[in-house]
């Protein structure tokens, strides 16, 4: 057989014919054997935390976006809201205005 005989098309066709195929009995044997072995083997291990997280992540994404939007809203509000410099309550003296009167010192 020369190289010419094994050009792409011929090789393709020959491979398609020559690649082995299992017979139906072998497939049936396989199914029966797997069923037998699985019946005896323990149940599969539960999904790991990573798989559970990945499975649950798509459901959490909307909630995550909501939380992010709320946090961004708070940040913007805190950034733009005018800060009031009110006098501290403890330092407020109710008689203070009286002391500023010109005659206040004469009675004390």
């Amino acid at each position: 057989m020369t190289r010419k005989h094994w050009e792409d098309d011929a090789l393709e066709a020959a491979l398609r014919r020559a690649l082995p195929r299992p017979d139906a009995a072998a497939v049936a044997r396989l199914e029966a054997a797997v069923a037998r072995r699985i019946a005896r083997s323990p149940l599969p291990a539960p999904p790991g935390p990573l798989v559970r997280l990945r499975a649950g992540l798509p459901e959490l994404i909307p909630a995550g976006w909501g939380a992010l939007a709320a946090a961004a809203g708070c940040a913007v509000w805190l950034g733009l809201h005018p800060v009031t410099h009110a006098a501290p309550q403890a330092a407020y003296d109710p008689l203070g205005p009286l002391l500023s009167l010109p005659v206040a010192g004469e009675f004390l």
Binding site: A26, L30, S41, P44, A45, P47, V51, R54
Partner: peptide, 24 residues
């Protein structure tokens, strides 16, 4: 040999069913 390997592969798939991630 092929039948043995096929059985082993399917058994492993059963045992690892919990770690199968359809997202990947």
């Amino acid at each position: 040999e092929a039948e043995e390997v096929a059985q082993e592969a399917l058994l492993r798939a059963w045992q690892a069913a919990g770690s199968f991630d359809p997202g990947r």
